[in-house]
Nucleic acid binder design. Structure first.
Lengths: 336, 336
DNA sequence: TTGAAAGCGATACCAC
DNA sequence: GTGGTATCGCTTTCAA
């Protein structure tokens, strides 16, 4: 049925070990033999069994990306394709494959044994929302290569990648200041949520001082964008720009300002995290920091490759912070 | 180092074949032995090597989803997570894994041999944009299990899944008619593009007659939404509703109508394909047909499983058309 | 019920 | 340069 290395060996009248060497282009084999064997492989339409190769080599060349489909609205959701693309772009050329594993079907208990012990994968990539302290500990104990998207307590710094969210805030604020705005507010996001805290911290850092009333947390949706803006406008001291936790928030903010007859960008600037497809089409178009999720995936892939292909043990290095990209649009256009 | 089936056999003082049988819960093994062996496996933290199992069984339990990262703006892009989720939800419980393979790293020539001959995967799922006539032919010749998202000439009907786009048009039009609109136009989409043709056909079918001027094709973006609407409004005979090829088109249409002072939904209804996150938040919110991409993935998974686990050869059945979901919002709210 | 031995399809070491 | 053979870790007859 299927043609194996033995068939080739027989047909070429050489030992199977020779065929194997030809397969791997070993320098000890004469060009003549190589040519002969290759011709036969071609002719017989031979393709080595990856399973057998992997078993013999004791290496699967397989990276697993763990997701949890039981939870919806996962961070990964929107940018999944980009992240996968990023990971693929670095592991693919090195001969690794990417497999998607759903935690739902694994079960947290069997998780470590499946992967770390069963060596179903050579390395793991996962979102920090999937990790638990025990999981991290077990993985660490076994010294199993894994990379976490986002920081997580107990995970070594050189195994974390993340978008530099604090930096995103800084970029947004610096852009606003450069445009002549002076007192931005921060709208949306829930206290305690790490993403929010990080962004808020960056926001605070890039300003000399921030009035407490200018920080308006709330679940990041359109309704809250509107409501929080309404509240903000009631203050005696008003901000002259608003940094938003997400496009949805920004959209709410924009609508509320329009209804109240406040001109954007003249009277109030709007700058926001994320860059969904509609952002360029609002009136005015929204200034965003674009989270480069492809780069994020690529960074994760790189870290993992470094870990897997290190010959010597590498010294611990910093986590990989992917720099966001500022997309300036009309909602903050007020050249001084 | 790693504990194998031999270690267990030795420790339990049984043959390795016995351990194997315990692993697979064979009925010929006494409960007593099973218990004993299992205890030892537990204790020694044993996990079978999937590689070895797969080689022995000659089956990898692996489904590959082929993508082409070299082309951007792929259809998959936006709904990738959902599609993967759908596929996973049906193959995961059956013990299959999903691996993502980038065509870019494979090369069209090596493609068939890699997968079909090398049996890297037991089955393939791919977008029709990736297929070529030769590829389809080769896969067919080798009788290799594959499912295509979207139709493709030469691919058997029972290997295709797609969103029922014609049906989507019908749903949109029927909704409009039910709301009292009488002469809808169709805006956006490029002639020749299969997706457009299918939707347009559904549109035409659900109406007694359509004026030619009411069909306004054009690359589906916001700018064209505006432009085409402008043109539409210049006609002596105006439509009273607009079906849009995409949310972006709809957004353009909406803006143009607003600028021209035409009331939505009173004077003109808007209904559109797709349902991006911002659709509920436009003013007024947009009526959409939501393409259920999770169901699409699930359908693909089901077809493949049927193909892989069929005992007898199955008779050819129809392709799987996933029904879209109508989300009625204010942009078409004009109860008669 | 259990065990021994022959695969599965490659790799790798060591002679020749 | 090339060939023989053990090995990777599990499954699967076939005997006992």
């Amino acid at each position: 049925m299927k043609v194996t290395i033995n068939d080739i060996a027989r047909a070429a009248n050489v030992a199977k070990s020779t065929v194997s060497k030809v397969l791997n282009d070993a320098p000890t084999i004469s060009e003549a033999t190589k040519a002969k064997v290759r011709a036969i492989m071609q002719e017989m339409n031979y393709e080595p069994s990856s399973l057998a190769t992997q078993l013999a080599r004791q290496k699967g060349y397989n990276i697993a990306l763990i997701i949890d489909l039981s939870r919806t609205g996962d961070f990964l959701n929107a940018s999944f394709y980009d992240i996968i693309g990023g990971v693929e772009s670095v592991i693919g050329p090195r001969g690794y494959e990417l497999t998607i594993s759903n935690m739902q079907h694994i079960g947290r208990e069997r998780f470590v044994s499946r992967f770390a012990i069963g060596r179903k994968a050579d390395g793991l990539i996962m979102d920090n929302s999937i990790l638990t302290p025990e999981l991290a500990r077990e993985l660490n104990e076994r010294n199993f290569p894994y990379i976490v998207i986002g920081e997580y307590p107990g995970v070594p710094a050189n195994q974390c990648v993340d978008i530099d969210n604090a930096r995103g805030s800084v970029m947004l604020v610096e852009h606003l200041l450069a445009q002549g705005y002076q007192s931005p507010a921060f709208v949306g996001g829930e206290s305690g949520e790490p993403l929010y805290e990080t962004r808020l911290e960056g926001f605070r850092q890039s300003l000399d001082s921030v009035r407490d009333e200018f920080i308006r947390p709330g679940y990041a949706n359109e309704a809250n964008g509107r409501r929080l803006t309404r509240e903000l406008l009631k203050e005696t001291e008003r901000p002259d720009a608003i940094v938003c936790m997400s496009n949805l928030v920004a959209y709410g903010v924009l609508q509320e300002l329009q209804e109240q007859g406040i001109a954007v960008p003249e009277e109030m600037g709007i700058a926001t995290f994320d860059n969904i497809p509609l952002a360029p089409y609002t009136t005015p178009p929204l200034t965003c920091v674009d989270m480069d999720t492809f780069a994020l995936g690529a960074a994760a892939g790189n870290m993992l490759m470094a870990r897997l292909e290190e010959s010597a043990v590498e010294e611990v290095q910093a986590p990989s912070w992917v720099k966001p990209r500022l997309v300036a649009r009309r909602s903050t256009e007020r050249q001084a």
